[in-house]
Design a protein around this nucleic acid. Structure first.
Length: 185
DNA sequence: GTACAGATTGAG
DNA sequence: TCAATCTGTACT
């Protein structure tokens, strides 16, 4: 049976976790129903040095304070007044780093697999899985309603790195190849 | 208290 | 190309 990923997975260096997360299954339990999506696109945000990060220069606000928790917690927030962004904290306690989940491929229930566009964007996957502020600070290693499982193996030659999206204001940091996705086969 | 931009999306 | 829509943040 598939096993929930342990704390150890999340406390590795952020860029490594961002890559390893590709192919993992994100499981969301809603009542008796389960939704499962394979992670196919991620972006890394490397805390204090990363100008595109909310925690740039160790900034700590009411919104991003969970980024300082140990890896495995959820950082979720609203952008543009209507879309949630689902991030997973990485690294150790006190190091504000995280990975943004940008896209899922629906696996289960089967009817969603026919509609791959339902979760192909950071705002859309949250709408699909009904993720909102109530998940702020939730622990993926303990939660009963959301967690990550070992999924399909992804070979390194199927992973592409490119620059991150929607953060042009961060200038040179916007060009870092810290967005990872699986080649569509 | 007030102003303003943003890790997006879908329609035109 | 552009509006929708609202919270956190930085300022007065």
């Amino acid at each position: 049976m598939n096993k929930r990923l342990p704390r150890k997975f999340y406390t590795q260096p952020t860029l490594k976790v961002a890559k390893k997360m590709l192919g993992k299954y994100l499981v969301r339990k809603i009542g008796e129903e389960q939704l499962i999506g394979k992670i196919v696109e991620t972006e890394a945000y490397i805390g204090p040095q990363d100008k595109a990060s909310h925690a740039y220069n160790y900034r700590k606000t009411k919104r991003n304070k969970v980024e300082y928790l140990v890896g495995g917690h959820i950082y979720i927030y609203l952008v543009y007044g209507m879309y949630w962004q689902f991030n997973i904290i990485t690294g150790r306690r006190g190091s504000p780093e995280c990975v943004l989940i940008r896209a899922l491929e629906p696996i289960y229930p089967k009817r969603y697999a026919l509609n791959p566009k339902i979760a192909n964007g950071p705002g859309k996957l949250c709408r699909w899985m009904k993720l909102n502020k109530s998940f702020y600070g939730e622990d993926l290693t303990k939660s009963k309603r959301i967690w990550l499982e070992e999924g399909k193996e992804v070979k390194s030659n199927q992973i592409v790195a490119s620059k991150r999206i929607g953060i042009d204001y961060a200038k040179e940091w916007a060009k870092k190849p810290w967005r990872f996705y699986i080649i569509h086969t």
